[in-house]
Amino acid sequence: MATKAVCVLKGDGPVQGIINFEQKESNGPVKVWGSIKGLTEGLHGFHVHEFGDNTAGCTSAGPHFNPLSRKHGGPKDEERHVGDLGNVTADKDGVADVSIEDSVISLSGDHCIIGRTLVVHEKADDLGKGGNEESTKTGNAGSRLACGVIGIAQ
């Protein structure tokens, strides 16, 4: 089992970053940390998408990683996509320092995120509470600013 993974985020604009993942036990939580720069100040949706395909930019990554066919939600919700990591918060300089621990994603097994795409979005994720159909699919997080395929790390 891989215990570490990394993702280099890039987009068409100024947004870029490096996100690290570490899972010490196969059924334990995954620590997610790193930094994203070039964002507007505020909240930005942060999700693992189904495919590791960036051939047409971030759009070819498909929908959120959702092997259990659930509705979109927040990272602490029972009803959520596996890939729903909530929001990252950018400061006035456009930098989001990421520090998350998640017990639904994994670096092995059915919820493995390796080979899938991590995406940072234009807007805040409403965590499935926006009151419309799009909220239950995407959290109304808007366009995909930057993305990268999650790969095994040393």
Rank of each mutant, 00 (worst) to 15 (best):
Phe21Asp: 03
Thr117Val: 15
Glu78Cys: 13
Lys76Asp: 13
Ala2Glu: 15
Cys112Asn: 06
His47Tyr: 08
Ala56Thr: 13
Thr55Phe: 06
Val82Asn: 03
Ser106Gly: 09
Gly115Lys: 00
Cys147His: 08
His81Lys: 06
Ala2Arg: 05
Gly151Glu: 15
Gly109Ser: 10
Gly109His: 01
Val88Ala: 06
Val82Ser: 07
Phe65Gly: 08
Gly109Tyr: 03
Gly148Gln: 00
Thr3Asp: 10
Asp126Ala: 06
Thr55Cys: 11
Cys7Glu: 04
Gly83Glu: 07
Glu78His: 04
Ser60Trp: 15
Cys7Val: 07
Lys37Ala: 09
Val98Glu: 02
Glu78Gly: 13
Ala2Phe: 08
Val149His: 04
Ala141Gln: 05
Ala141Pro: 13
Asp77Cys: 07
Leu39Cys: 01
Arg144Trp: 13
Ala90Gly: 07
Val98Asp: 00
Gly28Asn: 15
Gly142His: 05
Ala2His: 12
Pro75Arg: 11
Ser35Cys: 10
Ala90Leu: 01
Ser106Lys: 09
Lys24Arg: 12
Val15Ala: 14
Lys4Gln: 08
Leu85Pro: 01
Pro75Cys: 15
Ala141His: 08
Ser108Leu: 10
Cys7Met: 00
Lys10Val: 13
Leu85Ser: 04
Gly86Tyr: 00
Leu39Ile: 03
Asp84Trp: 03
Phe65His: 06
Lys31Tyr: 06
Glu122Gln: 06
Cys147Gln: 15
Glu25Leu: 04
Gly83Asn: 05
Thr3Ser: 10
Arg116Leu: 08
Gly148Tyr: 02
Ile19Glu: 00
Leu68Gly: 09
Ala2Trp: 05
Val119Leu: 04
Thr40Leu: 08
Arg70Phe: 10
Pro67Asp: 14
Ile36Asn: 01
Lys24Leu: 14
Ser60Gly: 13
Ser135Lys: 05
Ser60Cys: 09
Phe46Arg: 01
Leu145Ser: 10
Gly34Arg: 03
Gly115Glu: 00
Ile114Thr: 04
Gly34Ser: 03
His47Asn: 12
Glu78Met: 09
Cys147Arg: 04
Lys31Glu: 01
Pro63Gly: 12
Phe65Tyr: 12
Lys129Leu: 12
His121Ile: 08
Val30Arg: 02
Ser60Thr: 14
Asn140Cys: 13
His111Arg: 11
Lys10Phe: 03
Ser103Arg: 12
Lys92Ala: 08
Ala124Ser: 13
Asp126Asn: 10
Lys76Pro: 11
Ala141Thr: 14
Gly13Val: 08
His111Ile: 05
Asp110Trp: 08
Ser108Ile: 13
Ile113Lys: 00
Glu25Lys: 15
Gly45Met: 07
Asp53Ser: 06
Phe46Met: 15
Phe46Tyr: 01
Leu85Ala: 00
Val149Gly: 03
Asp91Ile: 02
Ala2Asp: 07
Thr59Tyr: 09
Ser60Lys: 12
Glu22Gly: 05
Gly115Leu: 01
Gly13Tyr: 03
Lys10Glu: 13
Gly148Ala: 00
Gly115Asn: 02
Glu79Val: 10
Asp126Thr: 06
Ala56Trp: 04
Val95Arg: 09
Val98Pro: 03
Gly45Ser: 12
Val15Lys: 01
Leu145Met: 10
Gly17Ala: 01
Lys123Tyr: 11
Lys92Phe: 06
Asp125Phe: 10
Ala5Ile: 02
Gly83Cys: 12
Gly115His: 02
Ile150Glu: 00
His72Asn: 13
Gly17Gln: 02
Ser106Ile: 02
Asp91Tyr: 01
Arg144Ser: 14
Val48Trp: 00
Asp91Gly: 15
Gly57Leu: 03
